[in-house]
Design a binder for these strands. Structure first.
Length: 219
DNA sequence: CTCCCGATAT
DNA sequence: ATATCAGGAG
C-alpha cells in the first residue's frame, strides 16, 4: 500500500499530466447531466455525447421524455447499448422528478440515489459537477487506477475505494482529484494497453513494474 | 451473482 | 474474436 506521501506524489503527477481534467459529458444544466451520466453506464463518453447532441435538442424537460412512447425513446438512444433499461429508467426518473421534486434535480446524494438508474457513482458525479459539492465518483477508471497504484486493496469494493480516497485526499480536492484520476485512467493508465513505459509513476507502482518485467529487451 | 447491449479498440 | 466502456437493478 502506498504511503500518504506517495499518494500525494501520484496526484501531483496526474495534475501535471492532465491540468485541465474535467467532466467530458456534454450538458448545459443539472437535468441534462443526470440524463447523460445515466446513459453513460458501460459506454464511452464520446458515444454518449454523439447521442445527446440530438437527444437534448428533442427533449428539454422531464415532460418531454414522458410525451413519447417507450419505443421511441429506445430508438433515440439505441446506439448507446443497454437501451431498454436506460429508456425505462429515464422515463421513471422523469416521472419521479415531477411527482416528488417539483421537476428539479435534487442537490442531495441520497435523494439522487432514489432515482431509477441513478446509483452512488452517478449521484456523486451529479452533486460534484452540477452543484459543486465535494464527492469522489468511483467509476471503472478510478477503481482501476486506485488498485494498480495500490492506493487501496485489490479486493476492495467500489464503496471501499471511495472511502479510502475520501480518507487520503483533502475534501477540497475530492472533485478535481476524481477528474484527474479519470483522465489518467482513460488516456494513460488504460485498461488494455497501460502506458507504463512512459509513466512518471512507475517508480512507485508495483503493478507497473510487474508489467514492465516481461517486456525487457535487454537484461 | 446475472442481466442488460451497441460501438470501438486491441 | 475478445475486452472494454464515467453502472445499476433484481
Amino acid at each position: 500500500m502506498l504511503t500518504l506521501k506517495q499518494i500525494r506524489y501520484c496526484l501531483d503527477q496526474m495534475a501535471e499530466m492532465f491540468p485541465d481534467a474535467h467532466c467530458e459529458l456534454n450538458h448545459r444544466n443539472p437535468f441534462e447531466l443526470v440524463i447523460a451520466v445515466a446513459l453513460s453506464a458501460q459506454c464511452t463518453d464520446a458515444l454518449v455525447n454523439k447521442v445527446t447532441k440530438d437527444l437534448f435538442q428533442k427533449y428539454k424537460t422531464p415532460e418531454d421524455y414522458l410525451a413519447v412512447s417507450d419505443e421511441e425513446l429506445q430508438q433515440d438512444i439505441r446506439s448507446i447499448g443497454l437501451y431498454r433499461n436506460k429508456a425505462k429508467n429515464i422515463r421513471k426518473l422523469c416521472q419521479l422528478l415531477i411527482d416528488e421534486y417539483g421537476g428539479k434535480v435534487p442537490q442531495d446524494r441520497d435523494e439522487l440515489t432514489k432515482l431509477p438508474g441513478v446509483g452512488r457513482k452517478t449521484a456523486n458525479v451529479v452533486v460534484s459537477v452540477a452543484f459543486g459539492i465535494p464527492a469522489i465518483a468511483v467509476d471503472t477508471h478510478v477503481e482501476r487506477v486506485s488498485k494498480r497504484l495500490a492506493i487501496c486493496k485489490w479486493k476492495d469494493s467500489v464503496l471501499e475505494v471511495e472511502k479510502t480516497l475520501m480518507k487520503k485526499v483533502p475534501r477540497e480536492e475530492w472533485s478535481v482529484t476524481h477528474h484527474r484520476m479519470i483522465f489518467f485512467g482513460r488516456y494513460h493508465c488504460k485498461a488494455q494497453s497501460p502506458q507504463c513505459h512512459i509513466c512518471p509513476l512507475l517508480d512507485v507502482c508495483r503493478e507497473g513494474k510487474k508489467r514492465m518485467k516481461g517486456k525487457q529487451i535487454d537484461g
